[in-house]
Design a protein around this nucleic acid. Structure first.
Length: 824
DNA sequence: AGCACGCCGACT
DNA sequence: GTCGGCGTGCTC
């Protein structure tokens, strides 16, 4: 007997384990590891994923139910992806089914539908026929196909009670089926036979069948396959005429799956490999030989903006393809611009599948199938493209490796960089992590001197291609501007530079670093911000209580009326937006043409592309925006980059604030002077001494990193220590506190038991979450801080499991974030 | 998660 | 005496 070990699609801790089912003979050939099946479970039918096919000796056979259906002809997951899902579940403490769901396109999310039919021997009285005759009639009519319960209930609202009773009595039978949310779109297509057959067949067509003859004549002119509807229209007839020709054997009508190719109507100029600079060639060499040797190595490709990293990716991919292997390229969502896609489509044409969030569910599903069916060998996409259903991956590239968008903020809260490295381990692929500003985690690992399969090999590209210089960076101290009576948004330097570009017809990118506004308090006179004395983190202002609070340790103080450092009364919350800047630009520079890009102006599909095209064609002088103008854009006439509030995000209560700021400033500075015209960068700040701002001036990643790593090591933050954030939520605060405390003391007890010092594992909290109430539920969080390689995830999971009973009864929900990226 | 089974109040 | 309210417990 064949047994299938199945993970059912119920995302809860209780059901997060395999259940065994017998496989009926009729399905035996279809069930594989990775198959999506329908199984009976606690009185209903659910979708599940087959994770193993154990022998009968391992299983107690008596209690088994049978798999009721196999949902796909080809399993949507491979053994490799099943293993990867199991690893994700352990690594990020999420239910297995949640990990699997993340790997499947939304179109394959199963939905259980109930169908109703009349039992063979059911008898209904005249009275019942009178009351619910229409319902019974509908049921009998649809008996072959069975009627959808949900449809019946809406159509026959008055007869709901009858339906329910008859189902209970067994006079109606309910059956459940798992259906896809979306199916493959098929088009009926006519395939004509060869010319000889058509010619011979035409002679046999009776004289009065004029239309059929016309169709054949049309097909003789156009012998390629054509959609049924199209042919009918072209020949001025209907489908029935064409069907009679099918009966004569002159053509064939088949359903053909139609791909919704979002790039179908676009031409991509063909590009061939560019000659590499010596530096690029040196960088490519070890990557190419790792691919050659099926050596699963990780590389950190650290190259300044404009150093030609993309060309190295392209040629490494070429290498993988030439060996018959596939490649995945991950790009931050925000950088997945048409410009980027074009580079890959131009080089690899139809072999590229593109996956990103702007595609419809259907389009995404089509791209996904293109990969699984082997019609594409290169997948370019955001985070989730790391799950592209390839079978023989040679290379995974992660561009802008440091980007936060690689971390998913909903469960499964995975980081695509870590998933990529694990997937490469399973498939024997090489990994290239590319960035001008690598994350401190990656950089520290690469230079640590540690050895190991996950430790990146460091490759550096310190120069731009074609000897183009990095742009000069000027830092403007806005406190000085204020002292001199300039209360405008633009410093004199920036205003002058802008005026100069307007006169020369060159272009400017203006970045408003808006993230973090209004949550922190800053003195406009001296730039002082209020910090937590225990955590070296900005305090968060809470409107309700008027408190300043640290959400790491819970420390609180009252909000200051004057600046604690300089006694100035000009201490206040910050707040401004792109719109305000736009108005100010129009006011200061009459006639200036500004494109504003923020969430408001780019929410519409295709608007992003539209604005960028407009800017590229120089129909605007200034591109003003938030983070989205900082990444990956490449415009020849941009010679000035201005940053309006460099330190805005610096005060966020997040230990990565400085790292983020440095990365953002370096990225946006890299937009200037990428071609013949030299570039200039002007950064406005209230905190010019801060290393994350100051280091941008010399493009000095090493200097910034050295200082920042020192701070991290002192405080035990990543990469030296690691974090797990737990959020508990409930309608009532006391309940929350007691559960939170129970967790904290439970984990501390466990640590003591294992002889761990508090420097090795510590639990902070519970304290109110940064969002203290959400959807009528209060939220508290605990932060677990631990050293290095400790298997803390498993410890946390163990403690949560141990307090299971009490917590379940209390109704407190727990959400775990391993390696949180956003502290807000 | 969500369905069955169970034990208590409002009806034919 | 039955229908159905929603509180626990289990799901191959």
């Amino acid at each position: 007997m064949t047994i299938a070990r199945v993970i059912v699609d119920v995302p809860s801790r209780e059901t997060d384990r395999p259940f065994d089912y017998s496989v009926p003979d009729s399905l035996r050939d279809w069930v594989e590891v990775g198959s999506r099946v329908a199984v009976p479970f606690a009185g209903r039918t659910l979708q599940g994923i087959v994770v193993a096919l154990p022998g009968d000796a391992e299983v107690e056979l008596s209690r088994l139910k049978a798999v009721s259906d196999v949902l796909d002809a080809v399993p949507p997951l491979s053994e490799e992806l099943v293993k990867l899902g199991e690893w994700m579940s352990r690594r990020w403490l999420c239910p297995l089914t949640v990990a699997f769901q993340a790997m499947l396109p939304a179109a394959l999310k199963g939905r259980t539908e109930k169908y109703v039919s009349v039992a063979d021997d059911a008898v209904f009285s005249d009275e019942e026929l009178a009351e619910a005759g229409a319902l019974l009639h509908a049921l009998r009519k649809d008996s072959a196909t069975q009627a959808k319960l949900s449809a019946l209930l809406t159509k026959f609202q008055g007869s709901g009670a009858h339906l329910k009773r008859w189902l209970k009595q067994g006079r109606l039978i309910e059956r459940q089926k798992v259906e896809n949310r979306l199916s493959v779109k098929t088009v009926l297509t006519v395939f004509p036979r060869d010319a000889d057959t058509l010619g011979a067949g035409k002679a046999d067509i009776p004289a009065r069948a004029r239309k059929q003859r016309e169709v054949i004549e049309w097909l003789e002119e156009h012998p390629e396959p054509i959609a049924l509807q199209e042919l009918a229209e072209a020949a001025g007839t209907t489908a029935s005429t064409i069907r009679s020709l099918e009966e004569r054997g002159l053509l064939e009508i088949r359903g053909v799956t139609e791909d919704r190719d979002p790039y179908a109507d676009r031409d991509f100029p063909v590009s061939s490999p560019l000659p590499l600079t010596p530096a690029q060639a040196t960088a490519l060499e070890p990557i190419a030989s790792a691919i050659d040797a099926k050596d699963r190595k990780v590389f950190l490709l650290h190259g300044v903006t404009g150093s030609g990293k993309t060309e190295i990716y392209l040629q490494a991919i070429q290498q993988a393809l030439s060996l018959g292997r596939e490649a995945i390229v991950l790009v931050p969502e925000i950088a997945l611009t048409p410009q980027m896609v074009e580079r890959f489509k131009s080089r690899f044409g139809a072999r590229v599948a593109v996956l990103h969030s702007r595609l419809s569910q259907g389009e995404r599903f089509d791209e996904w199938r293109k990969i699984r069916e082997g019609r594409a060998q290169v997948a370019v996409g955001a985070r989730s493209a790391v799950f592209a259903p390839f079978s023989n991956i040679g290379l995974i590239v992660i561009d802008e490796e440091h980007e936060t968008s690689y971390k998913q903020e909903e469960s499964p809260k995975y980081h695509a960089r870590d998933v990529a490295i694990e997937r490469a381990r399973l498939s024997g692929a090489a990994v290239v992590l590319g960035s001008a500003t690598p994350s401190l985690e990656t950089y520290e690992a690469a230079l640590s001197g540690r050895a190991g399969p996950d430790i990146p090999h460091y490759i550096s590209l310190p120069e731009r291609v074609a000897d183009r210089p990095l742009p000069g960076v000027t830092i403007v101290d806005m406190r000085e501007e204020l002292k001199l009576g300039n209360r405008a948004m633009f410093s004199r330097e920036l205003a002058d530079a802008l005026r100069d570009r307007l006169a020369k017809g060159e272009q400017t990118v203006l970045l408003l670093n808006r993230r973090g506004y209004a949550t922190f308090v800053m003195c406009r006179s001296c730039g002082h911000t209020v910090q937590c004395p225990h955590c070296d983190i900005s305090l968060t202002h809470h409107k309700g209580s008027g408190n300043m609070r640290c959400h790491y340790c819970g420390y609180a103080e009252t909000e200051p009326k004057t600046c604690p450092a300089c006694q100035s009364p000009h201490i206040r919350f910050f707040g401004t937006g792109t719109q305000k800047v736009e108005e100010s630009l129009a006011h200061t520079f009459p006639g200036i043409r500004v494109i504003r890009m923020d969430v408001d102006t780019t929410s519409e599909k295709g608007s992003h592309e539209k604005w960028l095209t407009e800017f590229r064609e120089r129909r605007a002088d200034v591109l003003l925006g938030t983070q989205m103008v900082a990444k990956g854009l490449d415009f020849p006439y941009v010679t000035l980059v201005g940053v309006l509030a460099a330190d805005a995000a610096l005060r966020l209560p997040d230990f990565r604030a400085a790292e983020r700021t440095f990365q953002l400033l370096t990225q946006v500075a890299g937009r200037a002077g990428r071609h013949e015209l030299p570039g200039e960068v002007i950064i406005q700040t209230y905190d010019p001494e801060h290393s994350s701002v100051a280091s941008v001036q010399g493009h000095d990643y090493a200097k910034f990193t050295e200082q920042e790593l020192f701070i991290r090591s002192q405080l035990g933050y990543p990469p030296y220590g690691r974090l797990i954030a737990l959020t508990f939520s409930h309608e009532s605060v006391p309940m929350l506190l007691s559960v939170g405390q129970r967790f904290a003391s439970g984990l501390k007890a466990k640590a003591a038991e294992l002889g761990l010092a508090s420097t090795e594992l510590d639990v902070l909290g519970p304290v109110p979450s940064p969002i203290p109430r959400l959807k009528d539920r209060y939220r508290f969080q605990c932060m677990v801080k631990y050293r290095g390689e400790l298997a803390a995830s498993a410890l946390v999971a163990g403690v949560l499991q141990g307090m299971g009973e009490a917590v379940k009864k209390s109704g407190v929900l727990t959400s775990v974030d391993v390696d949180p990226q956003m502290m807000l």
